[in-house]
Design a binder for these strands. Structure first.
Length: 399
RNA sequence: GGCGACGUAGCCAAGUGGUAAGGCAGAGGUCUGCAAAACCUUCAUCGUGGGUUCGAUUCCCACCGUCGCCUCCA
């Protein structure tokens, strides 16, 4: 399997260690419904998971849940519910949506609120080693102590500082020693949930949870750590800093980032309101069709969702179903050749669009000119099996 | 400012130094009581201008244009 590594900026062979692969993907903040962008990211890692599994590797996949942060507290306040209840409800809906489109359950889905104690421990180590400092109940990571900050995103310090200023962040916060210092721990405001710490009652910053929970669940180095490419900076950048500063180095062997999904001319995001929800799509077409829609885009190329794609994906799905129900046949040689090319494509940096081309070819051969009634032959079985690798298993027969 | 992607038929999109897969939509047809589905057929000279070459959509240069991300974010 060849995969693009963000850190090295090139497609490199992924080498499993001892027949096992640990995958950690940054999950959601559960305060709103899952949209296509989320689905795309988790679909990509699901295909990767399935591919490794089918290749005989022991896969352990972990996807965290950021169940305490400004957004979730805000929404909970607006709706007058407890933030934990809101999180639990949203997680259930998220899991339901992902199951609808055929994602395998992850092996572990740790919630930030369940690991605060470990985070405090990690932060204490950083403070003890002078990589972090406390100011009035808050703790910041001292980026001045970590010159490599910016390595993953390939941004230099002046640029990062200028950017953060433009973006409304506050590099000039007088409490910070260096403009790029980031929050490890913050004092809770009145009414906010809080946990005890050496610096008073507070709650963790965003970045620390992933470093703590990923290494906690998978040890280190993490084989594959990924998420949407909007997380490269500052989230993953900061994870590396706080991990390596704590002596966990190398932290990650292979960084994998999935491109953004756009809609109506802009990145699909909560703040812009241009969302396409998974829930709405699965009401229109089978979950497998949604998977085919996602698989028709390469994970490193950002794309713009268009409503027509649903029809195209549904049509492709119907063709596959028809091919599996029909009595067309494929020679043993042809089946073998198709299967081989399918996996070559998939193993070449997860080229799912290329793999789909191969399935199209199989379906075309199975469909052309046949009206037979003897499904279940080698060709049909192959098509069904390969669809399974993409997470687009087709239900027996929806007539 | 930094990083990156991209310009191929109405739309999505693959691809190669020798005259362009596939899909969606559209058109025609087969099947069907009608229809749907399925199947068959049909539909482009590859952003602009140069250059290299026997020959470029594919290589080089320039230009134009589009887009994404950059401490809320997958």
């Amino acid at each position: 399997m060849q995969l693009f590594d963000t850190a090295r900026q090139e497609v490199v062979p992924f080498e499993p260690r001892g027949g096992r692969v640990g995958i950690y993907v940054c999950g959601i903040t559960p305060y709103d419904s899952a949209h296509l962008g989320h689905a795309f990211v988790y679909h990509v890692f699901d295909v990767l998971h399935r591919r490794f599994r089918d290749a005989g590797l022991g896969v352990r996949s972990v996807r965290n849940v950021t169940d305490v942060d400004d957004d979730i507290l805000r929404v909970a306040r607006e709706r007058g519910v407890d933030f934990r209840a809101l999180a639990t409800e949203q997680i259930r809906m998220f899991d339901h949506d992902m199951a609808e489109i055929g994602l395998l359950p992850v092996d572990a889905a740790p919630r930030a609120t369940e690991h605060v104690e470990e985070m405090v421990g990690w932060i204490v180590r950083l403070v003890d080693d002078a990589y972090a400092y406390a100011v009035g109940g808050w703790v910041f990571f001292d980026s001045g102590m970590y010159p490599d900050y910016g390595r993953l995103s390939r941004l230099d310090h002046p640029t990062m500082i200028e950017l953060s200023r433009e973006r409304g962040a506050n590099p000039d916060d007088p409490r910070k020693r260096h403009p790029l210092d980031f929050v490890l721990w913050q004092a809770s405001a009145p009414g906010e949930p809080s946990w005890p710490s050496p610096w008073g009652q507070g709650r963790p910053g965003w970045h620390i949870e992933c470093t703590v929970m990923s290494t906690g669940a998978l040890g280190h180095p993490i084989d594959i750590h990924g998420g949407g490419d909007d997380l490269i900076f500052p989230h993953h950048e900061s994870e590396i800093a706080q991990a390596e500063a704590a002596g966990v180095a190398p932290y990650v062997r292979h960084w994998s980032h999935v491109a953004m999904v756009n809609h109506e001319g802009e990145k699909m995001s909560k703040s812009l309101g241009n969302l396409v929800f998974v829930r709405d799509l699965v009401r229109r077409v089978p979950g497998a069709a949604v998977r085919l829609l996602l698989a028709s885009h390469h994970y490193r190329t950002s794309w713009t969702y268009d409503d027509h794609e649903v029809d195209a994906a549904a049509a492709r799905h119907r063709r596959y179903v028809a091919a599996m129900q029909g009595g067309g046949t494929l020679s043993h040689e042809a089946a073998h050749a198709h299967e081989q090319r399918f996996f070559e494509r998939l193993d070449d940096d997860l080229d799912t669009p290329g793999a789909l081309d191969e399935l199209d070819a199989i379906a075309a051969e199975l469909s052309s000119g046949s009206t037979g009634v003897a499904p279940g032959t080698e060709g049909q079985q192959l098509l069904g099996r390969l669809l399974g690798v993409l997470g687009a298993e087709t239900e027996a027969v929806p007539a």
